[in-house]
């Protein structure tokens, strides 16, 4: 489902953010990508979303070679990937319902389907009663659940979560992780970039550890260990 072949990314000459990284994530897998700041985790997410172009190597997602995508083809490609960020990135001037519906508007889903799907997603993330609230009226955990509902409403094949618990307390962090696990059990490939040692160690999933732009370990039921 996700394939990186000898991928490097340099923002400045001689300082690679990613250095010759190869990676293969199969369909339906749940993968943690861990590592300290500057290890290249965020660059990896940006490459998967085609926000950035690799300096070298090839990124292939669902058999699509990202290098070959034209600017016009990018939106359609991104619709197969749900994405959740640490800072939620909700549209601040739209309420919960409109934020989730927006992801469907973008792909021109008929209104009758939007009216069916959005409440279903809101129920799934436990926010059915807050559909009229604006992001500023919600807690961090609730905002992240809205972001998750938005990422999932179009039933993407892949879900990318970039530090999804970075701004949340432990209780909310666990709730978000449980939701991600549920989504994965329904068949979505999930890739979570995180710092959260406790969660990674408890969930016993595949863990890819990065350091200075290189994958230093890739364990099937791994943990998040100290760097030294």
């Amino acid at each position: 489902m996700i394939k990186l072949e000898n991928v490097s990314k340099e923002y400045m000459t001689g300082m690679p953010a990613l250095n010759n990284v190869s990676l293969h994530v199969r369909k339906g897998e749940f993968v943690f990508v861990v590592g300290n700041s500057g290890s290249g985790k965020s660059t990896l997410v940006k490459l998967l979303l085609k926000e950035l172009e690799p300096t070298e190597g090839e990124v292939i997602i669902d058999n699509v070679h990202l290098k070959r995508l034209t600017h016009r083809q990018i939106p359609k490609f991104r619709r197969n990937i749900g994405v959740v960020f640490q800072d939620f990135r909700l549209l601040k001037d739209r309420n919960v319902y409109e934020n989730i519906a927006f992801a469907q508007r973008v792909i021109e889903t008929p209104t009758r389907y939007i009216k069916r799907d959005v409440p279903a997603m809101l129920s799934m993330v436990g926010l059915a009663e807050k559909y009229k609230s604006f992001p500023r009226q919600l807690s961090g955990g609730e905002q992240q659940r809205v972001a998750l509902a938005r990422a999932l409403v179009n039933k993407p094949k892949i879900l990318l979560a970039d530090e999804p618990t970075g701004n949340l307390d432990p209780k909310n962090s666990w709730e978000i992780m449980k939701l991600l696990e549920e989504i994965n059990q329904q068949g979505t490939t999930v890739l979570v970039v995180t710092h959260n040692r406790e969660i990674v160690n408890a969930m016993k999933k595949r863990v890819i550890t990065m350091r200075k732009g290189v994958i230093v370990s890739d364990e099937k039921q791994g943990g998040y260990y100290d760097e030294d």
Partner: peptide
């Protein structure tokens, strides 16, 4: 700008 960035990341076309 941020709003436009979000729109693009969730698959909006330039037109949209």
């Amino acid at each position: 700008k941020e709003e436009i960035g979000i729109m693009k990341l969730i698959g909006s076309t330039d037109f949209f």
